[in-house]
Amino acid sequence: FEDMVVVEYMLSIVQRLPYLGPIYGGLREGVSIYLQGTIPENINRFFINLLCGESESSDIALHFNPRFDGRDKVVFNTCQNGSWESEEKIHSMPFCKGQAFEMIILVSSHGYKIKVNGNDFHHFKHRIPFERVCAMQIAGDVSIQTINVIGVMGGQPIYNPPVPFSNMIPGGMFPKRTIIIRGMVPYGGDRMSINFVVSRSRDIAFHLNPRVREGVVVRNSMIGGCWGQEEREISMNPFMEGQYFDMSIRCGNGRFKVFVNGQHLFDFVHRFQSCNEIDMLEIDGNVQISYIHF
């Protein structure tokens, strides 16, 4: 498992539409589905369905259907045994023509909590047990860049945190633990830093420092107030202005393994005595963070 790129609680994909695919492991309380996409100028409508099977004729536990029809609204519904139930119509449109969006579907014990661009939008109560959901369908006038299915292992994700960011890592780092960070380098952004810190001593066990204009990703550590030797060699630089990135940082027995956008970027050999003492994550610089999953 040391070389796994995708951990079991995260599915990251870029898809052409229409899309119909499985949700590996299904849904459970605390799971969230993160979507990032763009609304075209000539939109009419699109939909997102959470299905109880992997065919278009399966029961639909959640039907999410924005409609730009002159009386803009979002329709929620379910469909069982081929029959649609009563619609819930929200006469408020959280999407804008020609603009990008971020959307989250959070599974709670009572229903699906929908957020768009960081704002609470609607809570659709369960009509079909969420345990039956095993697939997702997306079609219509929308462009989807990324779908992430994030589970509850290791705690809840943090969405849209402000930068600078500093937070304790629940349970600390340990072998085989993976931290997921999704974000974007804004236009004009030059550099950022991601630090894995020992809070009691303020030692930086792992310093990850993408420098956009130089086209390098610097790695280092700072122990006892002294910086170590920089590491700069990489086969590619995935950090570019205006581009989203998905980063997976996995703590191994002897090293950190870093993947970006599904590709192995580098390994960083542990310089600190024990990775178990690493208990804080800090992020600073020119970066916008969509979410962090511990």
Rank of each mutant, 00 (worst) to 15 (best):
G30A: 01
V14R: 12
I204L: 13
S290V: 01
E88R: 12
S83C: 10
V7D: 03
G215E: 10
D72V: 04
I144Y: 00
K97Y: 06
G228R: 08
S221Q: 09
G30Q: 01
M184N: 05
G254A: 07
V5N: 03
P175L: 03
V107N: 06
N220C: 12
A139R: 15
Q15H: 00
E8D: 08
G37N: 00
L11V: 11
N167E: 15
P129T: 07
N286H: 15
N276G: 01
E241G: 10
K257P: 00
D72H: 11
E102Y: 03
G254V: 03
I158F: 03
P129M: 07
K257Y: 00
I223D: 00
F130S: 08
F259C: 10
P175W: 06
F268M: 09
N160L: 10
Q243I: 08
L281E: 03
Q15I: 07
Q263S: 03
E230V: 12
F272T: 11
R177C: 02
D59Y: 09
Q229D: 13
S193L: 07
F259V: 03
P238F: 02
I90S: 01
L11C: 09
F165E: 02
V14P: 03
Q137F: 03
E85R: 14
K89I: 13
S92M: 09
S55L: 07
Y291E: 06
N77L: 11
F68M: 13
N42V: 13
R191H: 14
T38I: 09
R200I: 05
W227H: 05
F272D: 09
M136S: 11
Y112G: 11
E54K: 15
M247Q: 09
K115P: 00
G151Y: 04
I39W: 05
I43W: 01
N209W: 14
S92D: 11
M280K: 12
M10E: 12
E131L: 12
P164M: 02
V5K: 08
E131M: 10
S235L: 08
S92A: 12
F95N: 05
N77V: 12
F256L: 07
T78D: 10
V218G: 05
F68R: 11
S58Q: 06
E54D: 15
H122G: 02
M153T: 03
F294I: 00
F239R: 04
G70S: 14
G70L: 14
M240R: 14
R271D: 07
Q80S: 14
G225S: 08
P186R: 06
G188M: 00
F1H: 08
H293V: 01
V75L: 15
V185H: 02
R255D: 11
D284N: 14
W84G: 10
F272R: 06
V75E: 15
K73A: 10
V163K: 00
Y34F: 15
S92Y: 09
K115V: 01
Q36I: 02
E41L: 13
R250K: 06
F101D: 09
